[in-house]
Simulated assay, not measured.
Amino acid sequence: MSNLSALRFFSTPAHACSYLEEQQATTLFVDPKTQISPRLYDELTRLGFRRSGDYLYRPHCQLCAACIPARVRAAEFSPRRAQRRILQRNAGLQVELIAPIFTQELYQLYSRYIEERHGDGDMFPPSQEQFASFLMSSWSDTRFCCFRDADGRLLAVAVIDVMQDGVSAVYTFYEPSLPELGLGTLAVLWQIDYCQQHQLPYVYLGYWIQNCRKMRYKSAFQPLEIFVEDRWQDAPLP
């Protein structure tokens, strides 16, 4: 185990929370000068940290603890009826894993997604620089999982980091004009299957926020664990 006590951290000033309108947020960052190894990344992920570009962060709010790290126990997962329907609906899609790169095709899909799904968020407006600085990293084992239809059209991209004990679901963006396909759910189901195939125990889904509609979807992937009181424990069933 790494000497985590030797790490330096910085916190941001309080700012408007992206998820809960009435709350102020503070974010704790690992010192950007820290040399991040795969082992250290794994350890910090197990303590609830997430990656944004080359930065590792965790919520550090004084008056709120709504953002709770969540992970799926992949080996025990079995899709529910609605999830099985999404798998059947998208059975003809092909998935290709590629290195994290910038292309106009990838960026145009990302841009459409941000503009139509997150126009009220802190990621709007999208930019090419944002695409690279948010999704890519100089030290992580990152893959772009590209979902294409039979005509080769790019419909969705799941950005994942492969770790020793699973994958971290960094971000997913998809064609916003096709909500009936359930592409966001499909991306999570594919990551769970990837872990099952490679005998990796967990899919780290980021933060579960009970009172935020955009983040509650994670409860649909059971068995789900949440990191509370410095330990992983079963999440309540939805």
Results as ranks from 00 to 15, higher is better:
residue 8 R to C: 14
residue 12 T to F: 05
residue 15 H to F: 15
residue 17 C to K: 10
residue 18 S to L: 11
residue 20 L to E: 10
residue 20 L to Q: 05
residue 23 Q to I: 07
residue 23 Q to H: 14
residue 24 Q to D: 11
residue 24 Q to N: 14
residue 25 A to G: 07
residue 26 T to S: 14
residue 29 F to P: 05
residue 31 D to A: 05
residue 32 P to M: 06
residue 32 P to R: 01
residue 32 P to K: 04
residue 34 T to F: 01
residue 34 T to I: 03
residue 42 D to A: 08
residue 43 E to I: 09
residue 47 L to A: 11
residue 55 Y to P: 07
residue 57 Y to L: 08
residue 60 H to P: 07
residue 62 Q to A: 14
residue 65 A to L: 11
residue 65 A to R: 15
residue 68 I to V: 15
residue 73 R to H: 15
residue 82 A to T: 11
residue 83 Q to N: 13
residue 84 R to Q: 12
residue 84 R to P: 08
residue 85 R to W: 10
residue 86 I to K: 03
residue 93 L to Q: 00
residue 97 L to T: 00
residue 99 A to V: 05
residue 100 P to Y: 06
residue 103 T to M: 00
residue 104 Q to F: 08
residue 107 Y to E: 09
residue 113 Y to F: 12
residue 113 Y to R: 12
residue 113 Y to W: 09
residue 117 R to G: 05
residue 119 G to M: 13
residue 119 G to H: 08
residue 120 D to W: 05
residue 120 D to G: 05
residue 121 G to A: 13
residue 128 Q to A: 14
residue 129 E to V: 12
residue 136 M to A: 06
residue 137 S to Q: 04
residue 139 W to V: 09
residue 144 F to V: 01
residue 145 C to T: 01
residue 151 D to Y: 00
residue 153 R to P: 11
residue 154 L to Q: 08
residue 155 L to C: 06
residue 156 A to G: 07
residue 161 D to A: 02
residue 161 D to P: 03
residue 162 V to M: 01
residue 162 V to F: 02
residue 163 M to T: 15
residue 172 T to Q: 09
residue 173 F to P: 01
residue 175 E to N: 11
residue 179 P to D: 10
residue 181 L to Y: 05
residue 188 V to W: 13
residue 189 L to E: 01
residue 199 Q to S: 11
residue 200 L to G: 05
residue 202 Y to A: 01
residue 203 V to D: 06
residue 203 V to T: 05
residue 206 G to H: 04
residue 210 Q to F: 12
residue 212 C to N: 14
residue 212 C to Y: 13
residue 214 K to M: 15
residue 216 R to C: 14
residue 223 P to W: 04
residue 225 E to M: 04
residue 231 R to Y: 04
residue 232 W to L: 06
residue 233 Q to P: 02
residue 235 A to V: 12
residue 236 P to Y: 01
residue 237 L to C: 08
